[in-house]
Amino acid sequence: MHFWDQHKNITLYYEALTKSICDKYDLKQLEYDILMFLHFYPQFNTAADIVKVRKSTKSHVSTSLKVLEQKGLIEKKQNAKDKKCIEIYLLKKSDEIIEDGIDIQKKFMWDLFQGISEDEMKIFKDVFDQICKNADNFLKESDNEKNV
C-alpha cells in the first residue's frame, strides 16, 4: 500500500506550486482548479459536469462558482435549447490566471517526470489508464449494487 501513502506527495507538491497563484489572485485551491478545468475541458461547462468529472462535492463547487462569478472570472448563461441548463464560461479577466496556471502545470510535469524515458512514460500512461478504468468500473458496480 506504499503507493496510497506516497501519491499524496504528488498532490501536495502540486498544491504547493499553485499556492503562489492562489495567493496572487486571492483564490482558494478549488476556485483555481475550476478555472483550469474550464480552460482545458470547455465541453464540461456546467456545475454538474464539474462535480461529476472532478469528483467534487456539489456544495463546494457551487460556492466556488459563486465566488468566481463575483470576481468577474466566469459568467453563467442559460442554454438556448435547455432552459434548465446553466453553462459556465471563462471571462477575459481569467486569462492571466490561466496563463500563470499553464506555466505552473508545465513546471509540475517537468519536475515529476525527470529521468523518465519516453518508453517508460508510455508504459506509465498505459498502466495508469488501466488502473483508472478498473477503479471506474468497480465504482459503477458498487453504485449499481446500491441501486438494486
Rank of each mutant, 00 (worst) to 15 (best):
T57A: 10
K58W: 05
K58Y: 10
K58E: 09
H60K: 08
H60L: 03
V61H: 03
V61R: 01
S62E: 08
S62G: 03
T63S: 05
S64I: 04
L65P: 04
K66V: 02
V67T: 10
V67G: 00
V67W: 01
L68Q: 02
L68A: 04
L68E: 04
E69I: 02
E69R: 04
E69Q: 08
Q70F: 00
Q70P: 02
L73F: 07
E75V: 03
E75W: 01
K76N: 01
K77R: 15
K77N: 13
Q78I: 15
N79W: 08
N79C: 15
A80W: 08
D82F: 09
D82Q: 08
K83H: 08
C85S: 11
C85M: 14
E87M: 06
E87K: 05
E87G: 00
I88H: 03
I88P: 01
L90K: 01
L90Q: 02
L91D: 02
K93V: 04
S94P: 01
D95Y: 04
D95T: 08
D95K: 10
E96D: 12
E96W: 02
E96V: 04
I97D: 05
I97R: 03
D100Q: 07
D100S: 10
D100R: 04
G101F: 03
I104K: 06
I104Y: 05
Q105I: 07
Q105W: 05
K106E: 12
K106W: 04
K106Q: 13
F108A: 07
M109Y: 10
M109A: 12
M109H: 07
M109N: 06
W110S: 06
W110G: 02
D111R: 05
D111V: 03
L112H: 03
F113G: 01
F113K: 00
G115Y: 11
I116L: 15
S117A: 06
E118N: 09
E118I: 11
D119W: 09
D119C: 10
D119Y: 12
D119R: 12
E120I: 05
E120R: 12
M121T: 15
M121R: 13
M121H: 10
K122D: 09
F124G: 03
F124L: 13
K125F: 06
D126H: 07
V127I: 12
V127T: 12
D129L: 08
Q130D: 07
I131G: 01
I131P: 00
C132H: 02
K133L: 06
N134G: 02
N134F: 07
N134W: 06
A135D: 06
N137F: 14
F138M: 10
L139D: 12
E141F: 08
E141L: 13
E141W: 09
E141P: 00
S142A: 08
S142L: 08
D143M: 11
D143Q: 14
D143S: 13
D143K: 15
D143W: 07
N144C: 05
N144H: 11
N144I: 10
N144P: 00
N144W: 10
E145S: 13
E145A: 13
E145M: 13
K146W: 12
K146Q: 14
K146N: 11
V148K: 15
V148F: 15
